[in-house]
Design a binder for these strands. Structure first.
Lengths: 352, 352
DNA sequence: ATACTTTTGAGGTTCGTACCTCAAATTGCC
DNA sequence: GGCAATTTGAGGTACGAACCTCAAAAGTAT
């Protein structure tokens, strides 16, 4: 009944030649329309456009990139800290550079002094003279950075914001988690994990960092709404500095002897971990921290930390690259694939 | 000092021509070696191989696929149920088919009667006569299925196991979560969320499904190790059937009046949800279920469920396709990217 | 050394697209 | 209607690799 050697589907994609045939024009004209080259009358453009729509033509990017010998040059602008999370992003970029290389994309990294908006601005302004097809920025949302991003985009360079959003600028995309939700998630876990009445401390990084503020905000909301047995005390700014955090802890425990939980919403966990283990405090306290790193992973495994809220740095980097490429090619992308999840890690679901 | 129009990097990939030049042979010979065509002396093969290694040549798959006009034909074998999770995978495949189409890959779906290994075997054996470049199987691990997978692989067809592993067969990859860890994760959440002493029920699907067994196993281990205040009672088999589950619930609550939690480790949540809301039981019970679906999402939002353990169906499908392609091309893949995470969802970190 | 076999090289075509040139056709304008 | 400007077509080359053919070169056997 059936063919003996059957194909599952034999449909094939329309090509530029099909468009030319259907539109009743020459290949050269189709090419002019597709690549927005001048010298085509509006009527003709419409004829071609109609044929494209009818056929459902989609440009074969692989062939196109081959033909034009295209190479995507992307630049990642990262804060120059020894922060474990930034380091993870850094090494993800390095790692994935190899794979990206064979896919015609080259990635460069520029480190800028943290909390130095002017440094970022200078780099962004220098980009146009370089041969850069897209920029990913991990930096603070200051007016000057915002304007620099705008300037870049006005010159046609795609820009994505990494980890910390720059909503007021006109960045093409944001690659990272919703930090209010992250804070809410931390609060829900805290509320559920803590069985006693008491105070909860939020250890934050900087009042200037948008992501830290948002986490705190989300955390407070949920504790207030759902967990009356907890009281969130004023944030402590650790400036992402392990030493500073370590030094601040004794005073905090003097001030709040009835502390039942700590939400470490920023970096610098090393100081916290050191203090807790030296004072054997982890058993009595619920600690929820951010970002899965070698250090936090160990703390979770040993029971020093009770849960981690995290975002997958590998995913972030891949997503940023895909989005820059799609934006550069003016091509749609898969929204669900680019959504960065708010990961919750317990010691039981750590990746191997 | 510097060029005024500088490129960030100017390195370019070696091509087949570079190999020919370095090896001191002709392009035709390089081609013969690369594509394992006969008629090349061993010495010459080695010369070419040496040049390839020296240059770090990597085949440009895009160009190669273009030249040979390659199309990947993949087949997904799924159980034919109205189960929400399988439905989600199904629609992910359909959705992504569009994107995959433009990337030269065609995906077909075959539904097989659930719990009918023979049906799967028949399909797998029929595959060889079709023009199929890879198969993804979501099915039970029975000896006959295992052998059929082996047969397929012996004929050079890549096979990946989906969601439920077929470790004893020689599937090329497993795309899914570690279900023992998933069970452990559920237990940890249960132990932390339940503050009273009492019994915990595990609602499972079938004793035959490997994934369900593993979840139960992981769950029991962690409860036993860490949460002496809880007692896990004998599993109840819901056969993924909402109606059956709904009907069984009253008897369960009679038998265990001191139930404090339910771990719904399989499908059929609709029956559980209906029973719980009709009897307003959700407040007193901690419910942890599996898989983020419209139904479970709503239950989580309303507070009927307290947490979900999930795996991203979109990721699973994309990963399966990437792995089939990589296996088919005998090309390496990014292990970290293909790892399916054990997602934990609270109502706070649900995707929008 | 001759005949024969195996290996190698040179060259071409194809895939789908980009981009270029030059000539021919069409259009607009006075 | 005539002229210039604009638009269109025809054709070629290139990208990197696959695959094909045919002839030349090298190796092997007698």
């Amino acid at each position: 009944m059936e063919d003996q050697k059957q194909k599952l589907e034999l449909v094939k994609k329309p090509t530029v030649n099909d468009i030319a045939r259907v539109a009743g024009v020459s290949l050269a004209t189709v090419d002019r329309v597709l690549n927005r080259r001048p010298g085509v009358r509006a009527v003709t453009v419409q004829k071609v456009q109609k044929a494209i729509d009818e056929l459902g033509y989609v440009r074969d990017t692989a062939a196109a990139n081959l033909a034009r010998n295209r190479v995507y040059n992307f630049l990642f602008v990262l804060p120059d800290t020894d922060n474990e999370f930034v380091e993870a992003i850094n090494s993800q970029i390095a790692e994935q550079s190899r794979d990206q290389f064979i896919e015609r994309t080259r990635i460069a990294i520029k480190k800028v002094a943290p909390f130095e908006p002017q440094d970022i601005v200078n780099i962004l302004d220098a980009v146009v003279s370089l041969d850069v097809d897209g920029v990913a920025v991990f930096g603070p949302e200051t007016p000057s950075v915002r304007d620099a991003v705008k300037r870049l985009r006005d010159k046609g360079v795609p820009v994505v914001a990494l980890v910390s959003d720059l909503p007021s600028s006109e960045r093409d995309h944001f690659v990272g988690i919703d930090n209010v939700s992250a804070g809410r998630t931390a609060a829900q876990l805290m509320g559920r994990f803590v069985h006693r009445d008491g105070k909860v401390l939020v250890l934050t990084g900087s009042r200037l960092a948008r992501d830290h503020l948002e986490r705190r905000q989300g955390f407070d909301l949920v504790v207030a709404e759902e967990f009356p047995h907890l009281e969130v005390v004023a944030s402590v700014e650790g400036r992402d500095d392990p030493d500073l955090i370590y030094k601040m802890m004794p005073e905090i425990f003097e001030t709040y002897p009835d502390l039942v939980g700590i939400y470490s919403s920023a970096a610098g966990n090393a100081g916290l971990i050191q203090f807790l283990s030296e004072n054997k405090l982890s058993k009595d306290l619920v600690i929820i921290a951010h970002e899965l790193t070698p250090l936090s992973r160990e703390a979770l495994t040993l029971g020093t930390f009770d849960a981690l809220i995290s975002q997958d740095t590998g995913h972030i980097v891949r997503s940023a690259v895909r989005l820059l490429r799609a934006t550069s090619d003016k091509v749609p992308f898969n929204k669900a694939q680019e959504r960065i999840r708010i990961d919750i890690y317990l010691k039981e679901n750590l990746p191997p």
